[in-house]
Every structure is written in C-alpha cells, then in structure tokens.
Computed example of a mutant assay.
Amino acid sequence: MTLHLPKKVTIVEVGPRDGLQNEKSFIPTEVKKQFINRLKNAGIKEMELTSFVSPKWVPQMGDATEIVADCLDSTTRNIVLAPNQKGIDRVLETNCKAVAVFVGVSNTFNKKNINKTTEESLEELKPIIKNLKDQNFFVRACISTSFYCPYEGKIEEEDTLKLCSEFVAAGVDELSIADTIGMASPGESYSLFTKIKEAFPHTLINAHFHDTRKMALTNIFAALQAGVDRFDTSAGGLGGCPFAPGATGNVATEDVVYMLDRMGIETGIDLTELVKAVDMVAPYLSRKIDSTYYRLQHA
C-alpha cells in the first residue's frame, strides 16, 4: 500500500479561542496571555487568539481587545474570530490583520448559533470579506457542521461544497472544514476533502475535527490521504461547542503532533514545550485534560 502523505503539515492552534471559549469559569487574562506565549514558544506559527463576540453571550472572550493588544507578533499568523460587522469594527481598532468568520452548513445550527439562516449569514458576510480583503487582511472561513449536524443529521456533500464555493467566490484565503460534533468517518473525510481539494486548488484547505467519538486521528489520516496539509487542533484537547449538544473538545494538538512525528511528517512543534503550555493552563480549567499523549507524560 502506497501512502500519499505530505512532507510538512501546518498546525493552526485554536486552543486559546475555540478551546477556552466554553470554559464556565473566567480564566484570568494574564493566564491566557501566558498560554498563548508558551504555545508560540513550542513552535506554533498560526493561532486563533480570541473572539470579538458579545461578552454577554461568551463572557470568556470579554478580554479580546487586551489579548490582541499584548499577543500580536511578526512571526505568527495571529487570527481572531469575528462573527459580524460589530465584531469586525472592534478588530479594525487593533493591529490584527487576520480574521476568521463562520457559517454553519446546517440552517438549524446556524439559527441556534447566531439567529440567522445560512444564506442570511453568507449575504451579511460577503461585503465584510470584500472590505477586509481590500485592506489586505487574511480571511479564513470556518464552515461548521460540514459532515453532520446535531439537529439535522447527515449533511450532504453538495451542500458543504456549495457553501465553500460561495466563500471562495467572496475572496477568502482559507476554508476550515469542521466536523463540529465529531461524527465523520474516515471514508467521509477522504471523500469530502478529495472533492474540496479538487474544486478549490488555489485556496488553503484546513480540516477541523472534534474528538467526540475518538475518531479525530483516523479522520486526520484520511484527510492527509486526500491532500490536506493544514489542521486545526487544540492544546490539551480543549473545546466544545455550546450550540452542539454532546460535542467534546477539538482533537489535541499534542496527539496530532505525536502521530505526525511518528509518520515522519514535519510540524516544527516541540512536544515538550507544548506539554508545558498545557501544564500552565490546566489548573484553571473546569475539566481534566483529555489527550493520550499528555496523560502518558504525567503517568
């Protein structure tokens, strides 16, 4: 059997944003800054720092302005999430030049998340994306419920591809394709990513897997076979989604890096320093760290 694998993979660390946003207790801002800096020390070169969302709905992200003010640097792609024009306006007051927007393929999920249909969200975002690109921003589109929805069940590939096509036409630089509730199988992962890679050869394609059913690593392996070389991961396996019942954390950065290292695929990330970053934030979390590599380092 011939494996078709890249020589190098880019890890986009989402722990400080996607990982921490669902924590019930507010994590001190200084702790978040230290966490971010230690992740960068481990070799992370692309990262979601925080979200410019309403503190009323996501109190954990209420310190977004301060995080961005202190955590930007010239060697990392520092990404912030902004769901709408109000969030974008706050981003424009900072020096950040990389933004993530998001839409769910599922209308029901989208309505519960941001109280808009998929089409309504897309139409609102198109002029925002154009404005950001006119100002030389890097824009990533996060496509939620790309495989399954907690309310609508299986999502058809054609629907995910159609939404991706709309975002590419709008001018985004990257598509982050999310298995939001962790139900994708390796066959489904290979199939969808093969079609996405073929359809959008000039767009960065990123796979975002949740480890709800312990299938994330197998799905990453399948996505690698389909030509994907960018993956969203979260240090310590932190995360979840308040609008996706039962969804657990993102796949753990340390588990992915360990697997890729064993496969001879370069990531540029130091596992020892990565574990130190998780050690630093662990005492402030509401749940135990759920990643195999981390657990074995502390056995």
Rank of each mutant, 00 (worst) to 15 (best):
P150K: 09
I114K: 02
G171K: 09
V101E: 00
F147I: 03
N131I: 04
V58M: 12
G171N: 12
F138K: 03
S146E: 00
T160P: 02
V80I: 14
C142V: 15
Y151W: 05
Y148W: 15
T76Q: 11
C164S: 00
F147R: 07
L125T: 02
A64P: 14
Q85I: 08
E124R: 11
D134V: 04
I79P: 13
V91R: 13
E124Q: 12
L92E: 15
G87H: 07
R77P: 09
L81F: 15
V139Y: 07
K133Q: 05
S146W: 09
A98E: 12
K86E: 07
C149I: 08
R140L: 06
M61I: 13
T180R: 12
L175H: 04
A82V: 14
T108F: 05
P59I: 04
T94C: 01
I177K: 06
I181L: 15
F102Y: 09
D159L: 10
K130Y: 07
A82I: 11
T76Y: 08
S165Y: 06
M61R: 11
S144K: 08
V80Y: 10
N84E: 13
E158M: 06
S74G: 01
E120H: 01
E119K: 10
I128V: 15
C71A: 06
V172R: 01
K126N: 03
E158I: 12
V91E: 01
Y151M: 03
N131D: 13
A170E: 04
R140E: 15
L72C: 03
V91L: 03
T180M: 05
L161R: 09
E123W: 10
D73H: 10
S74A: 12
V68D: 00
V58H: 10
E158H: 13
Y151F: 12
P83Y: 03
E152F: 08
S74N: 14
P150E: 06
A170K: 09
T145D: 04
L72Y: 12
S146C: 03
P127T: 09
N113D: 08
E174W: 03
I129S: 03
E66P: 10
